[in-house]
Design a protein around this nucleic acid. Structure first.
Lengths: 184, 184
DNA sequence: TAGAGCATGTAAGCAGTTACATGATTCA
DNA sequence: TGAATCATGTAACTGCTTACATGCTCTA
C-alpha cells in the first residue's frame, strides 16, 4: 500500500464530530491528538483542499459577526466512507523516532556531563507534557459516561500517561547509572 | 535550523566504531538502533554518496575472497567533526507518531470488537519486540564493563524495555476497560 | 495604538518510503 | 539447481517541515 496522508484521516475524524474551519481543526489537534500525532497549517490547509477536490468534505464560506470570516468544512458520505475504510484496516507503521536516543547511543563521543544534561532536559520536557495530559485526563473523566467517543479518547490519554511514566522512570535510572559510573 | 538527515549521523556514528559497507551498516542499524530509529537502503546508499561527496567519509572498493566485492567506508576527521557538532547540540524534534492511537481515537466509528482486535494485535507485535530487546540486553550486560560505548547502548536498551513494559500495561488495561463497557 | 490572537494560505525543499533492477555467491 | 543471502544501487513519489505572506479584529 502506498503512503497515505494521516492528516486527512484526522481531519475527517474531527469533522465527523462537528463542522470546523482549518483554524479550528489545528486547535483541536493541538489539544486532543498532539500527544501522539502533531501537524501544522502547512499540512492541514493543503489536505483540506485535496479532500474538498475529492468530494470528501464540503467547504462553505461563513460570514462572521465576531472576528474574520471563516471557511467551514463538513464531512460528506464519501468522506465518512473513506474514514471507516481506513479504520477497518489494521494499523501499520508505528515507527517511533527518538532523536535523544540516537544522540545518547553515540554518547561516548562527548562528555558524560553532556549526556546527563541531555537526559535532564528530556526529563524536564516530558514532565511538562505529563502534567498537561493529567489535566486533560481529569476533564475527560468527568464526562466519560456521556459519550462513547470519550471512552476512546480516554484510552489514548491512558496510553500517554503510561508512556510519560516510563519516560520518568527511565530518566531517573539512566541518570543514576551515569552518576555511578562517574564516581569510579 | 533546516531539517537534517539523521541517517547521516547514524552512519557517521557507526563508522567511528569500525569501517563498514552500506550493507553492513544496514545490518547494524537493524540490530542495534532499529528500536528507536529505522531506515532502509533507499536512505543509506544516497546518504553515503552525499557524505562521500562532502569528504565526511572515504570510500574504498575491497575485493573479497568470500562473497561479492564490497565498498567499505571509513570516517574522516571532517566526518568526526560533523558528528560531535551534532552531539554538542541539544536534541529536538522527538515527534512520536502512533497510527494505532489515531485509529483508536476515532474508534467509535467502528465496532468495539474491531478496536479490541486492534489492541490485541498491537499487544502481540510489541511483545515480540520486547522479547528481542530482552535478548539484546542480556548480551550487552555481559560486556558492559569492556567499553564506554556499551554503557550508552545499554541506556537505549533500558529505554526500550521501559517503553515496551508500558505498552503491555496499557494494552491490558485498555482491553479491560473495553470489556467492562461491553458487558453493560 | 499596539500587540496578541484570529484566520487562511503558499513555496521550497528535504526526508523517508516503496518498488524496482541487477548480479554474484553460498549451501542444502 | 534453485532458493536464500550477499551486495549495491536508482526512480518516483509524497508527507512533512519551515518559513514566508497577508490582513482582520479584539482588548488592554
Amino acid at each position: 500500500m502506498a503512503k497515505d496522508n494521516k492528516t486527512a484521516y484526522i481531519i475527517l475524524g474531527l469533522l465527523q464530530h462537528e463542522d470546523m474551519s482549518g483554524y479550528d481543526i489545528k486547535k483541536k489537534i493541538d489539544i486532543m491528538v498532539s500527544h501522539f500525532w502533531e501537524t501544522g497549517y502547512g499540512q492541514i490547509y493543503p489536505t483540506l483542499k485535496q479532500l474538498s477536490d475529492n468530494g470528501e468534505v464540503l467547504k462553505e464560506e461563513v460570514e462572521s459577526t465576531k472576528g474574520p470570516d471563516k471557511i467551514v468544512y463538513s464531512i460528506t458520505d464519501k468522506g465518512r466512507e473513506k474514514l471507516t475504510d481506513w479504520l477497518k484496516h489494521p494499523a501499520v507503521n508505528d515507527t517511533v523516532r527518538y532523536e535523544i536516543l540516537l544522540k545518547l547511543f553515540f554518547g561516548s563521543a562527548v562528555s558524560m556531563e553532556e549526556n546527563m544534561e541531555r537526559i535532564r532536559n528530556f526529563q524536564c520536557d516530558q514532565k511538562e507534557k505529563m502534567e498537561m495530559i493529567a489535566l486533560f485526563k481529569d476533564n475527560l473523566q468527568k464526562v466519560l459516561s456521556e459519550d462513547t467517543d470519550h471512552l476512546y479518547y480516554y484510552l489514548t490519554v491512558l496510553f500517554g500517561e503510561k508512556i510519560y511514566r516510563a519516560y520518568m522512570e527511565w530518566s531517573k535510572e539512566a541518570l543514576e547509572l551515569l552518576q555511578n559510573k562517574q564516581k569510579k
